[in-house]
Structures are given as structure tokens and as C-alpha cells.
Amino acid sequence: MLELRLVQGSLLKKVLEAIKDLVNDANFDCSATGFSLQAMDSSHVALVALLLRSEGFEHYRCDRNLSMGMNLGNMAKMLKCAGNDDIITLKADDGSDTVTFMFESPTQDKISDFEMKLMDIDSEHLGIPEAEYHAIVRMPSSEFGRICKDLSSIGDTVVISVTKEGVKFSTRGDIGTANIVCRQNNTVDKPEEATIIEMTEPVSLTFALRYMNSFTKATPLSSIVTLSLSSDLPVVVEYKIAEMGYIRFYLAPKIEE
């Protein structure tokens, strides 16, 4: 028996909007720790890892570890039917091939339930080792989204370079080139507007902008994004989910010519 009650149902709506275009089908894993997902895109270039900790739910009942295969497009369709202020409860019985989403309006005058078919998904689970990153950039998520969108109108790839001077995003395409430098800036009034760079050594990596733009669909989940870079590892693009956990996107770099 599984029963998860999330008062801030909009978080789950935003999570699905953030990942549904990257991954078609995925297993949601439910354990005492929380509600989690790990999935790769169909090309095995990017990986998404989601964790919503059990403490973040108003009510969290998970009698035994459960893996539920869902089509994310269909799940997003159902969650779109929940209001932004609705409380969302997920329910599943042991051995059932369906999951039920219950939506309650804040005033309890409208209660809906949507039952969705589960599916068998043969997915690989990858071990993600703890890593020391050469550079960690923390910046406003809206700024990162703007940069990825702007650069993708010029080129297909972005070179992210971190030095003591700041973080540089560069692209080139048929019409020309673009470079955007964000300097460390931690003197702003609001912490969510700061750009903070921690660097042990300079790093420069090339990534496909198509994936970066897809990751920025998680922007509504957090005002801050963290980019963790090492010269021989996938970049980690992390959006923290307040009080609950995170959504992390891993993207394999392109090989430098």
C-alpha cells in the first residue's frame, strides 16, 4: 500500500513539466527515503535524478519498496488537471497495475481522482559516484535559462568555461559567435540573485544546447541553479526543490575536436 499526500501539489506538476520532454517512460521508486526517479533520455546522453524526501510529504505511507513504471507524458496530462493550489495524493495498492492521483481543492469543495495505468519498464539503474568537482557555479536559474535560450538562436553547442574571472558561455554558428560572461557577484541584496563561483582549477567543457534548454524547464522549481563541472565528467545541473529534495540533470560533454 502506497499513499503519498503532497500539500504543495504544484511541485509535482512542475516536476513533470521539467522532465516529460526529456524522458518518455520511467520508473518512480518509492521507499522509506522518499519518492525518486532516475532515467536517461532515449539517446543515453542525459540522465535525470529526482528525489522528493518522505519528510516533505504531509502523509507518507510506503509499506514496502515499490517501483511504478509510468509514461511521463500521460502522467503530465493527468497532473495538468490538478489546480495549482490543489493537494495531490498518490495511491497504489500492492500488486496493482494502476496508480491513482487524487486532487483536493484547498477549500475541499472539489475532489477528483484520476487512475492511470502503470507499465513495465525495463530500465537500467546507473551508479553515480560521489565526485569532487573542479568548479561549482551557483547562479539565478532565470539567468541561466535566458543564456541557454539566447545562445541556442546562434549555435547548437555551448562551451562553458570557468576561470577566476567568472563563468563564460560561448557558442558559434553560421551567422557568427557569442560569448556571455557572468562574473562572481555575491554583494547583491537578495541571495537568489547572486552568482557564486567555487573553483579549484579552471575547466572548459562543450555541451549540446538542446539538452541544456530542456533542463531549464525546471526553472519554476527553484530560483537558483547549480552547475557542477569537472574536465572528465558529465556536468550536473541541479535545481533544489524547497524542503523536499532536488532534480539533477547530468549531461555528457561533447568531445573537443
Binding site: A46, G127, Y250, L251
Partner: peptide
């Protein structure tokens, strides 16, 4: 065009 690496070349199956 820079060739694209795959995630599976960095992280192994558990």
C-alpha cells in the same frame, strides 16, 4: 561537429 559522448560511458550499471 563535436562527437557526443554518452552518460553510460561515465556511470556504470548497478
Amino acid at each position: 561537429v563535436n562527437p557526443q559522448r554518452q552518460i553510460t560511458s561515465f556511470f556504470s550499471k548497478t
